[in-house]
Design a protein around this nucleic acid. Sequence first.
DNA 1: AACGACACCTGGAGGC
DNA 2: TGCCTCCAGGTGTCGT
Length: 296
Amino acid sequence: MPELPEVQTTVEGLKTTIVGHAIENVRVVGNSQKILRSHDHGAFSAIVVGAKITNVSRRAKNIVLDLSNVHTIVIHMRMSGHLLVTSDKQRVTSDGKWEGVAKTDPLGDPKNQFIRVIFGLSGGKQLAFSDLRKFGTIDVYKTDAAKKHLQEKYGPEPFDKKLTSERFLQMLKSKKTAIKPLIMDQSFIAGVGNIYADESLWRAKIHPLTPANLLASAQAKALLEAIRTVLKKGITLGGTSIDDYRQPNGQKGRFGEVLKAYSRHGQPCPRCGTIMQRIVVGQRGTTFCPHCQKRP
DNA sequence: AACGACACCTGGAGGC
DNA sequence: TGCCTCCAGGTGTCGT
């Protein structure tokens, strides 16, 4: 599910709510042990319980929780995961049910009912991981190992100032692969997934199957700017909640209301009115405007 | 090295 | 209503 803006929105929500709190216990609901990937439940608890959360940050689509005991928890929400934080008088029971939450409360939203892992925090707060499809992962590493791993595994962050349009063009020149799967490749550039890829390519007027090395300098520049623009807008609007994503308070993001391309096949292009088409690229549904985004 | 196919899970939507 | 098939925002692995 979540791409960079959703992860960033989550991180910002967690920063103001859970930093400074200690982890008192970790519960796994039902048959969800595999979400704790690096360690089994007992070993994971033994490492994190008693430690204080000192910082929350993001690298690529990972949520990074630094702990006071030189360990770091790395959470990946994959397709349908999201993190929720309880406020006063709200509670998740050990079987994943909400208490003190009305159906009309954002936390009462049906998409917030798939609680798989619960962190009990000091002060009576809870951090709950809801994930319908159970694809999400929660790992813990020693902090230096975590930082090294996160640094090496992923490509540049889209907002990194060192990622100039010249450098981006250079990166594209060495790849013959189609541009859409390339910008979704996290080792090429971090944070772009299917929604923001479609949006960026539409904005930059580039056909998703264009071989990367055929992009002209002006197109590379336009694409990098488009990626930055759509990601920034996604963050401003609290992410895209097409289906499963929710903010830590349970609310939906609003970027879905302003999508120009993603999932709009059969509807007119907002720029030229041509009916938008759907194709499959790299096994992913892809929507584009056949008039604005011409194949080279 | 690069690319495609598939697996991992579960629920919702749409067709018949 | 009930059953069936398809679809989903991501990524790891395995095969060619």
